[in-house]
Design a protein around this nucleic acid. Sequence first.
DNA 1: CGGCGCATTGAATAACTTCAAGGCTGGTGG
DNA 2: CCACCAGCCTTGAAGTTATTCAATGCGCCG
Lengths: 238, 238
Amino acid sequence: MEPALELARLRRACTHCTMHTLCLPAGSDALSLRPQDSLIRSDRTLGRGERLFRAGQVLDAVYLVRDGALKTITLAKDGEEQVLGFHLPGEMVGLGALATGRHRSEAVSLTATRVCEVPFAELGQLAARSPSLQAQLLRVMGQGVARDQDHVEMLIRRQAAERIALFVHGLQERYRLGGRSASELVLPMSREEIGRFLGLALETVSRGFSRLQEDGVIAVSGRRVEILDAAALGRLVQ
Amino acid sequence: MEPALELARLRRACTHCTMHTLCLPAGSDALSLRPQDSLIRSDRTLGRGERLFRAGQVLDAVYLVRDGALKTITLAKDGEEQVLGFHLPGEMVGLGALATGRHRSEAVSLTATRVCEVPFAELGQLAARSPSLQAQLLRVMGQGVARDQDHVEMLIRRQAAERIALFVHGLQERYRLGGRSASELVLPMSREEIGRFLGLALETVSRGFSRLQEDGVIAVSGRRVEILDAAALGRLVQ
DNA sequence: CGGCGCATTGAATAACTTCAAGGCTGGTGG
DNA sequence: CCACCAGCCTTGAAGTTATTCAATGCGCCG
């Protein structure tokens, strides 16, 4: 990758990062944070299919996706994979472990992915010293809760077409919040993974995309999805 | 209700309440909390069908269910109700609003219900002064996230029978954690509400219960559900 | 260029929803 | 006290939707 492009990507990722004050302290009470309070332990790079954490593992850090994408999954009794969530740049991973201190799910990289690692033990101490950081932490956790609720709202819809429209719409929204082009998406996940996220067979997902294409809402070519009629998509989910 | 029974119920509710140190400060750093730090503003009593908060309303407090039961719902475009969660004694309500500061859903009482109201603004300040309180707060929030994830895991299952078995099993578990009899449940919600929680038609829910009864797993009589074979139920969900 | 993984599409089957009727229960008023 | 009413639950039958099984197509990488 070219250095200039790389730098631009980094800047973009950090600007939109929900926790960027953690690595670059700022805000009204920035003075209460010392320079060495920067929380980011290190960056980790994961290859496709690599695991960030596994189920049962002790929670020692939460993670922020800088670049790439992750999925969090659980394995049902029959070994079938259930996808609990997809995590895009700027989003947080690992909050599901807060209740017990151990991860309930595992996080798997979908593409080449870089994450910022935030040691969990220090996070609480630091939050206590910085009201704005604490508020921000609560807000980020709240966003995770809100995404879970969006997921639930998708799944409760009984028609496959509605779930799929909600999925595409939600992705578009998150890409937009992440500062990326919103009209053309390149999905980091397969049809099968979408199906395991939406509670549908992969064929049903494929047919759903085809149907949206027939209706002129999107243009699909494998994992490349172009939003042709955002208004129509909005109407489908509203 | 007789006074003795009432007192016993209160004691039980508070003992198992996830946040009972808030109203009766205790723990290793209890001394850092002053008596007037008790957070509970007041108790509120709701009749069946009454609303605790509505969508769009500013988050000014979170609530702990002391007695009774609540549901949180959203309304789809067609006015159809979706049930996001049921909230039993000892559980917290209102966390979905953390991201934006406004409630995304509304909370409706299913029976006569009493809740403890925890002013949100003071909660953060107090948590900063008490590490153990902060840890507890995070844990309770984590429990909310975990319940949402359980909900998602139910909904992803494509077979109605599996979802229903998971629902009954999960309820039993929560009754048990709340210190109540685990073998006989009296459901506070209707078949229709269960359906809107599980993404199923109410008739499908009814048939699912009947099927579990035929198989000797439970005995059903309207809203009274007796767990006859807990091992079999565990096998169905495991 | 060939192979492999992933996506699409078709046809048959299974599952769930919808429509409809009947039954149970708890509350209310005669 | 009993009958009736309303709401909720159950059960049956028909219709719809999604899954499963199967075959084909497409693109990417070695």
